[in-house]
Amino acid sequence: MKRRGPSPLGQILVYLGLIIACAIILYPVMIVLKKAFEPGRQFALSASPVPSSVTLDHFRELFSQRSATGELMFLRGALNSIVISLATTVVGVALSCTAAYALSRFKFPGRKAGLTSFLVVQMFPSTLLLMPLYVILNGLGLLNSTIGLVLVYSTTAIPFCVWTLKGYFDSLPAELEEAARIDGASQWMIFRKIMLPLSRPAIAVTALFSFMTAWNEFILASTFMTDQSKYTLPVLIQSTVTEFSADWGLFAAGAVITSLPVMIAFYVLQKYLVGGITAGAVKG
């Protein structure tokens, strides 16, 4: 492979192309950013992504909103979102790792069926499962509870995570485990001490995906939580948009804040992302 790459002109063209593509793709995001800093409740008519004047009023208003009981709604919502998303990540990763390990390493009757069922389950349109899920959670007494929401989110994330993790596990050679088994290690110890440390990329992907599923989810959170102090960030942001009028400035400010953690998580876990999703598929 020529290390030099194409001619300097070619390189400039590529960079130019990338810049243009970036600008096009990031334009909507810039509009949101602009609205978050521009005064006024409506979007301006101009298409320019540069705000005509800058103000922090929207952010100030966002952070100072108080509920009827006097607590700061946004911080409360952020705390709820963080707790729920982190819990979902832990539970989701735990459930998916064990399940994927079983599907990858063991042969048992119903294994193939189990594998296809994880794919098939993705085919249910989840918006239509809302009402039955409500009935079930009500029956289990898990309505309006953090645990209930965490369980539902983790379960939603499982299929994709199992698919990713299984692919990755498949690509790891079995000899490592053989050696450990001969030495007398139990299956659980092999899982914990050998498989997991080797699977960091895939686990990073799984964790990120679980986190994102929980962090960005709106419909289930708004239907199942009846206590205002349990609302998550997406629910709070949507409440700025009512039937008749919307405070788009507040909405945009909330959107910016809500998107930050995911972006940061993406940036930090970037190198794992690339390796984790595909390693199994390519090598396997």
């Binding site: 459930l95 064990t98 079983a102 379960t155 199992v162």
Partner: peptide, 25 residues
């Protein structure tokens, strides 16, 4: 049993929170 033990937790939560609502639906 080890395989089922590993698969168990995910399978149960999928059954209760995904399969059951689907059947109800």
């Amino acid at each position: 049993r080890t395989a089922l033990g590993f698969l168990g937790p995910a399978a149960i939560s999928m059954l209760v929170l995904v399969a059951a609502p689907f059947v109800i639906g």
